[in-house]
Design a protein around this nucleic acid. Structure first.
Lengths: 192, 192, 192, 192
DNA sequence: CATGAATGAGTCTTCATTCAT
DNA sequence: CATGAATGAAGACTCATTCAT
C-alpha cells in the first residue's frame, strides 16, 4: 500500500547486508528483554565492527527509529484505514488496540512513539502522517458525538502510551490489557 | 492522624543533619530534572563524604524510598480519608487527583509508587496500608454501583501511574492534566 | 610454668572485657576462614565501637600478635622442654610437629611466626626466648651428630613455615602433613 | 623443542605493542615488590587507557598467568629434559633448582605455580604437561630406589613452593637457598 | 574510656565513541 | 567502507582511620 521508504542513496549490497544484520540482532536483543541496546554488544553479535554500526546509526535513537520504521508504517496504514471507517468509534477502537498490542510487544516502537524529538527525517514524516490520519479520525468521531471534544490526536497518543505503561508494569495478563484499553476508550467517550 | 514514622534508633544530631542535607540535595536534583540520583554527586553537593551517603542509603532505591516516605505517608492518610467519605466516587476523585499532582511534582515519589520491590520495610508497610485503604474505597464504590467491577486497587495504581506518564510526556499544561484525570475517572465508572 | 605476661598498667574491668571480646571475635573470624581481620567488622561483631578496637590494637598486626601470644608462650615452653630432652632429635621432632599443627590451625599464629618485625615488645621477647631455646636444642643435636651443621634456629623456623605453607596449599590430608614433616626432618638429618 | 605458544588470533601490531608494554610494566611492579598488580596503576605506567588493560587481561589472575606463561613453558621443557635424564635423581635436582631460582625471581610465576585454579586454558595445559613430565621423572627415580614412595608430583610441587616460601622470607643469601634446596632433596630421598 | 558517624582516597569496572589500520 | 583496538571519563563501592560526641 505504501512504498518502502528509502534511506537516501542506495546502499551497496554488503552494506545493506550489514545494516540488516544489525537491525536483526537489535530486535533479538529487545525481544530478549535487554533494552539497553549497547552498540558494542550488537556489533559483536552481528559479526560486524562497532564502527560499522555507528556508520549506519549515529546513535541509539537512530537505531530505535530504524527498528520501528516498519511498524510505524503499518500503524500509519492502520490509522488511515480507521479514518476511513464508517463507524469512527469502532475505527478508533481498532486503532488503539492495534497500537497497544504492538507497543507492548516492541520496546523500540514504544520509545519512538513516545519520543518528542526524532533523528531521522523519515520518522518525522511518518509521525506527521500518523497525526494527520488520527486527527481526521477524531474529527469524524467528534462530529458524530462519539467522543469528548477536549482531546486531540496528540492527547490520544500520550494517553495510549500511558495505558501501555500501566499494562507493562506488574504482571502481563492479556485480559487486564483489554480492561485497561476499555478504561481508556470509555474515558474518551463523549460525556453524558 | 498517623504518627510521624520513626527512622529506627534516634540519630545523633550531626548524623541527622547530614541525612537531611543529603535528602535535600537529592530532592533538588530531582526537581532539576536529573533522576539519575548519583550518590557521588549528591555527596559532593551536600558537602559530605560519599561514605556518609552510603551509610545512610545503601543504594539508590533506598534513597528514593526515603525521599518519598513523607509523601507516601500523606498519601496513606488521604486514602483513609477518602475511604471514609460518604460519597465513594468523590473520595476516589479526590484521592486520584491528590496522587497525580504529587507524582507529577516528585519523580522519587513516582518511582516508589511504580516500583514492585522495596528495600525499606517502612515502604512495604506503607504500601500495604495504602492498598488496604484503596481496596476499601473501591469496595464501597463498587457496592454503590459507581465503578466497574473488573478493576482492583492494584489496577487503579497502575492506571494512575500510566496517566501520570501521559501527563508528564509532552507539555505540562495543568488543564490537560485535569482532562487526563477525567478520562481515567470516566473510564473507571460503571458501564451503562 | 611461665607467668602470664602483663600488658603494662592493669586494665579496668570493662576495658579488659572489651579486649577479650575483640580477641574472641577475631579468633572466630580466622577460624571461619576470613583472615582479612577487618577492624570495623570485628568491632561490630564484638558489639563495641571501632575506636575501642583501635585503642587496644593500633593496627592489624598488633591484633595478630595478641591473638598468638598465648600460643607463642606455649611454643616457648615446648621448645624449652625439647631442649631439655635427652634425645635431641626426638625433641626436635616433637617441637616441629607441635609448631606445625598449631600453625596450620591458626593463621594469626602463623603470621606472627613468619613476620620479621613485631609491634608488641612482648612478642619480641617471646621470639627471643624461642630462638634461645631452639638454638640450644640444635646445638645439642649437632653435637650428637644428629643434624647437619649448616642450619641455624632461624633456618629451622623458616623451613617449618615453608612446610606449613606446602601443607596448607591444596588438600589438607593429615597423613600428607606427616609426610611433609618427615621430609623436613630427614632433610635436616646429618648427611650420612 | 616446544614451539612458542600462540596467543590466539595474531594481534595487530599496535595491540601487541600495548600488550607487551602492560606485561613489561607489570613485571617491573612485581620486581619492585608490589604484587598487588593494580590494573589502574599498570595502565597509567604503561601509558595506555585502563580499558586497554582490561581488554587484554579481564582480571588480575589472567595477567599473572600471562606473565608466567613463558617461564612456565621453559619449566615444562626443563621437566621433560629431566625426565629423559639417565640419572633420575640428578634430573630431579636440576629441575628443582631451576624452578626454585625462577620462582624466587618472579612472583607472578610463583603465584601461578601455587594457584589451584587457572583462567587461561593455556595455563591449564602447561600445568598438565608439567605434571605429566614430573610424574614420569618421579616414577623412574622411585623405580631406581632413589626417592621415597610416598610423594607424588603434586607433593613435590607443593613442597618446592614451601621451600621457596622459606627462602623468600628473611634474608636472601644464595648460599642459604642452596642449603634449603638440599634439605628438600635429602628429605625426598628414599629412607635407609 | 567508649562510641560510631564521618571521611575520602583509592580501587574496580563499564561503555559510548573515536580513529588508526 | 569496514574493522575493532584504544580511549578515559564516569560511576559504583570499600574500608582504614579519625575525631566529635
Amino acid at each position: 500500500m505504501t512504498p518502502k521508504s528509502e534511506q537516501g542513496p542506495a546502499l551497496r549490497a554488503d552494506a545493506a547486508r550489514n545494516r540488516a544484520r544489525v537491525l536483526q540482532v537489535a530486535r533479538e536483543q529487545l525481544a530478549a528483554g535487554d533494552d539497553s541496546l549497547q552498540l558494542n554488544t550488537i556489533a559483536r553479535l552481528a559479526g560486524v565492527g562497532v564502527g560499522t554500526v555507528y556508520r549506519h546509526f549515529p546513535n541509539r535513537h537512530a537505531l530505535w527509529e530504524a527498528l520501528s520504521a516498519e511498524r510505524f508504517q503499518e500503524l500509519v496504514d492502520e490509522a488511515r484505514a480507521a479514518a476511513a471507517d464508517e463507524d469512527a468509534l469502532a475505527g478508533l477502537h481498532r486503532l488503539l488496540r492495534f497500537t497497544l498490542v504492538h507497543a507492548l510487544d516492541d520496546t523500540g516502537f514504544t520509545a519512538v512513539l513516545e519520543s518528542a524529538s526524532d533523528n531521522e527525517t523519515q520518522t518525522s514524516v511518518l509521525k506527521a502522517e500518523l497525526d494527520q490520519a488520527v486527527a481526521e479520525l477524531l474529527d469524524r468521531a467528534r462530529r458524530a458525538g462519539a467522543i469528548r471534544r477536549d482531546v486531540e490526536a496528540d492527547d490520544v497518543r500520550r494517553l495510549l502510551c500511558g495505558i501501555e505503561h500501566a499494562a507493562r508494569s506488574g504482571d502481563s495478563d492479556p485480559h487486564r490489557v483489554e480492561v485497561y484499553l476499555d478504561v481508556l476508550l470509555r474515558g474518551l467517550r463523549a460525556a453524558g
